[in-house]
Design a protein around this nucleic acid. Structure first.
Length: 206
DNA sequence: CCCTGATTCGC
DNA sequence: GCGAATCAGG
């Protein structure tokens, strides 16, 4: 496969949409994610941001080791450039107090006018209130959550249950992580509470 | 172990 | 220019 204009276009589009290299490779077909990443770099769009205020690479104390002109020309010179990279410190800008409002408006705290791309990620799975789930499903869930693998966000895969358990604002937060039901994002128990027949969802008016 | 992107370097 | 191998990390 070669990088036709059309394929490059698809690559650009998906990359800008925040798709991962492997997803793009899968979509294109005939290429690996390495190929995609390589192409992305050659195209010069490795930075997914639109050029924010401080993408500067602080060339820290990196003594430029020049080649020795008089070096014995016998060795292959497996040079190791040592890509030490100082962390840009783009971490959390000091979480303010009151973590209870989780699902509310983001209310951008810092960065007055930048941030072009807003991936927003996947929407959170539904968290039905207790009075909406069937007793059986509820019991099943409570049972299953004792066995939860307690995975962190990064440990989730396509085959792990993505049901959140606990309060995201505290340490008591993890994802179920049990094997998912085929095709579903959750394990069997959580599928039971996530996907309910309309008939059992008649809500009580408040 | 699953995954992510980054980099190098022979082709 | 291309991308496998490798690296570095969540």
């Amino acid at each position: 496969m070669s990088w036709t204009d059309e394929r490059v276009e698809t690559l650009k589009r998906m990359w800008s949409e925040g798709q991962s290299a492997s997803q793009i490779a899968k979509e294109l077909g005939g290429v690996t994610r390495n190929a995609v990443i390589g192409k992305v770099h050659r195209l010069g769009l490795s930075n997914r941001n639109g050029g924010s205020g401080a993408p500067e690479k602080p060339r820290a104390a990196e003594p430029e080791v020049a080649e020795k002109p008089a070096a014995p020309a016998a060795e292959p010179a497996r040079t190791r450039p040592a890509r030490e990279e100082a962390a840009p410190a783009a971490e959390e800008p000091a979480p303010s107090q009151e973590p209870e409002t989780v699902a509310s408006k983001p209310e951008a705290p810092a960065a007055p006018a930048r941030r072009q791309i807003i991936p927003a990620g996947q929407p959170l799975p539904p968290q039905p209130s207790a009075n909406e789930i069937s007793p059986e499903a509820l019991a099943s869930v409570r049972e299953i959550e004792k066995k939860a693998r307690k995975l962190t966000l990064m440990e989730l895969t396509e085959r792990t249950c993505k049901w959140p358990i606990g309060d995201p604002a505290t340490e008591d937060f993890w994802f179920c992580g049990l094997p998912v039901q085929a095709g579903k994002p959750y394990c069997e128990a959580h599928v039971g509470v996530a996907f309910q027949p309309m008939s059992s969802r008649r809500d009580r008016r408040r």
